[in-house]
Design a protein around this nucleic acid. Structure first.
Length: 104
DNA sequence: AGCCTGACAGATA
DNA sequence: GTATCTGCCAGGC
């Protein structure tokens, strides 16, 4: 069991993702400022049923294992930019944070 | 205590 | 493009 505060923060962050946009596990973790993407994934597996879990995808744009098909279906319904079986993170990513790219 | 697993991420080949 | 390794943090055995 994780800290309830962390769980609450994760669920709140996921609910805050606007329709038509997505966020990665790492983004959620960084936004909260605690733990890592795996902890976010754990929270989602346990309590994700109460939030739009399909808006949380992996950093490479692929949804979580086991729910990829349903997630993509829901994302397409929200007009999220999908490229094949992958989310176009460059366009659909909410809270786009600058990556460690020293050079563009 | 050690070891493996996981709704992950990044680097490397 | 895929495959593999390492790093991360928590949980289960």
């Amino acid at each position: 069991m994780v800290n309830e505060q962390f769980v609450e923060a994760v669920l709140l962050a996921v609910e805050r993702i606007p329709s038509g946009q997505v966020a990665s596990y790492g983004d959620i973790a960084e936004l909260i400022g605690y733990g890592g993407p795996r902890q976010v994934g754990r929270v989602m597996s346990y309590f994700g049923g109460s939030v739009p879990w399909w808006r949380v995808v992996r950093a490479d744009g692929r949804p979580a294992s086991g729910h990829a098909a349903e997630a993509l279906d829901r994302l397409r319904s929200e007009k999220v930019a999908i490229r094949g079986d992958r989310v176009d993170m460059s366009a659909a990513r909410a809270n786009q944070r600058p990556r460690g790219r020293e050079l563009i």
